[in-house]
Design a binder for these strands. Structure first.
Length: 366
DNA sequence: CGACGTGTAAC
DNA sequence: CCTTTTACACGTCG
């Protein structure tokens, strides 16, 4: 049967959610900020709505820069992840009814396998997409953009072509003309580094990449990545839509000042661990591996990790983190840290959950 | 093979 | 001026 996959992306999600809960800012340029607390405007932009993007404000940009670009109407708001997650959970819950399999790709994106639900008909798939858009508009007053394609890659890329509030389908027979003239670097999964490497080999477009010598690509990228690159370049993607189970949980934060003082850094780790605790308990998981994440004054990131006996106790994680921190600082005698984080991985899910049966089956059958 | 650290990518 | 969270691939080591 025809495989049909959908990708749903909530439009400027954080900014849109804020606009709904604060009617007084409706229609104004909105910038959602992650303040790091080092100075009044230190931090980065998480999302900007379309009006704010009109000034050149983009996610990842320093808040101070965004403020210079903005006009007097622009509203700067603090990022409130807990609230956004609530809204996201309600929406993702609704989507489960509309597909065979739901894969939540991030807080504001999901893939839906609708092959059966649509009976392999593109027309039915579009009807489903319109129903989803209407439902999200009616219940949450939010818009989304949906792409439909024969696989996840094409669904994702189709959705990008029309935003906000778009609906775009690329059928099998349209894949070639959709992708071949596109810059290779615009293909989902090909980032700056890979695009530059391709460029240096004279590969500009997806078409160039698709017909390039597989052997030459293997030399540069290795067999596996070379094959994936050439599949992507043809709009091919076999990866299944599957429910995701978190593999790791981490928290990272910015220190008030650059430091290599163990106590100061450990205080921050304790703070961050409180956030981990909440999620660990909610998910009812234990873990076997603990890592610390260290970002130095030059923004270089390094990690240290250790596998211990399985535990669900965050204090055990903190103890391990402290010893890793000691080790890290003695290995790096003149490095000061700007940011620090803690991560638990090698997760073991405790309670029998509906979502887990599938996961365990897949996991043990490999 | 499992553990560990790094690089790449995306949000 | 420079945030946060997650996933996955790969090389290396024992």
């Amino acid at each position: 049967m025809q495989r049909i996959v959908m990708h749903m992306d909530l439009d400027s999600f954080y900014a849109a959610v804020e606009e709904k809960r604060r009617p007084e800012i409706r229609g104004r340029p909105i910038v959602i900020c992650v303040f790091s607390g080092r100075s009044a405007d230190s931090g980065a932009v998480a999302t900007a709505n379309y009006r704010a993007r009109g000034f050149g404000i983009k996610s990842g940009m320093p808040i101070a820069m965004a403020k210079r670009l903005a006009d007097g109407e622009t509203v700067f708001l603090r990022y409130d992840i807990d609230f956004y997650r609530e809204v996201s959970d309600r929406i993702m819950g609704m989507l489960e009814e509309d597909c065979d399999v739901l894969e939540q790709a991030s807080i504001d994106e999901a893939y839906l396998d609708v092959s059966r639900k649509s009976m392999g008909s593109w027309e039915n798939a579009e009807q489903i997409a319109m129903a989803i858009k209407r439902k999200i508009r009616e219940t949450e007053d939010l818009t989304c953009s949906i792409g439909i394609g024969p696989n996840k890659l094409m669904a994702k890329m189709a959705g990008k072509t029309k935003k906000p509030d778009g609906l775009t389908a690329v059928k099998d027979e349209d894949v070639g003309k959709f992708i071949s003239g596109m810059d290779a670097g615009k293909i989902h999964g090909i980032g700056a580094k890979t695009a530059e490497a391709l460029n240096s080999m004279g590969i500009r477009t997806a078409g160039d990449l698709a017909k390039f010598s597989p052997l030459a690509l293997e030399q540069k990228f290795g067999k596996n990545k070379a094959r994936l690159l050439q599949e992507k370049a043809q709009g091919r993607d076999e990866s299944p839509v599957e429910e995701r189970v978190p593999q790791q949980i981490s928290r990272i934060g910015t220190l008030r000042q650059d430091t290599r003082d163990v106590d100061e850094i450990f205080e921050k780790l304790k703070e961050l661990a409180a956030g981990l605790e909440t999620r660990i308990r909610k998910k009812n998981v234990s873990f076997r591996t603990v890592s610390i994440i260290a970002i130095d004054t030059g923004l270089e990131m390094q990690t240290r990790s250790e596998t211990i006996a399985e535990t669900g106790d965050v204090n055990a994680a903190l103890e391990t983190a402290k010893s890793l921190l000691h080790k890290f600082l003695s290995d790096n005698p003149d490095r000061r840290l700007r940011r620090a984080g803690i991560r638990v991985s090698n997760l073991v899910y405790k309670k029998e959950q509906k979502s887990l049966g599938d996961f365990a089956t897949r996991y043990f059958m490999r």
